[in-house]
Design a protein around this nucleic acid. Sequence first.
DNA 1: TGACCCCTGGCC
DNA 2: GGCCAGGGGTCA
Length: 268
Amino acid sequence: MEIARRSLERWLGRSDVVGAEAERTRIFRGGGGGRKGFAAIRGKLARADRRGKVLLIGFDSGQGFLSHLGMTGKWVRREGVAEPYSRARLHLADGSVVHYRDPRLFGRIETHPAGVLESLPAVAALGPDPWLRPPTGRSLREALGSSRVPIKVALMDQNRLAGLGNIHAAEALWRAKIHPGRPARSLTPAEWSRLANAIRRGLAYALAAEDSEEIAYVEEPGTENPFRIYARAGEPCRRCGTRVRLLRQAGRRTDFCPHCQPARRSSR
DNA sequence: TGACCCCTGGCC
DNA sequence: GGCCAGGGGTCA
């Protein structure tokens, strides 16, 4: 999402929006001005912000929109209007077209005045963003530590901590050597501290490694799995060589190393 | 908390 | 043809 935010900031920042279109799809479900509101967008970029997985985009016209990418959403810049699964388009003064592309239609766009975006309930309810405010062991425990739910599930609860998804939650737990099924409130101060570190390092690593023009999703042709643990079940752990195992938590896969991330705290 | 739903595509 | 997939919402 941060890569998507930077892309939009770069593209819209150097060329104004002179026209817009939106297909009639469920992307525009939810509140606000809907697809008609989106199609009316014009002007110079005034803000390109992000809270967790939600992008907040505003223009000097006072118009704005919120964008959530779901699982397969993507903002891309093209020279023309031909783009598979393009659901919405911003036409820029330089002749290029910024498309919102989303095959599965799990993403969402809502149009609202630029100034009210963060007061929308869906945005206001979000927990702290670990990229904007790097977590410490203490802050993380304050955000998640009262919960009995498995730490992996707690990490993905956007109202507790906003921005980590399935991949980065699994990556952080592997880096921190914490079993994903541990109840959040059973973590020790040392573990909270390791986890905070792991989140900070994981995000920095992902952004440094993948800051390109577009988001690259794992399954795209020609891309190797760039993650340390995610989707590596059955392979040897990259740290200890133990066979990576697979759990299912809250309907999501969790890859973990049973040796590095033991279910019970070691007594050592 | 788990089951199911929303969608389409890729892989076996 | 069946199963799986980054997200989130709803229901019992």
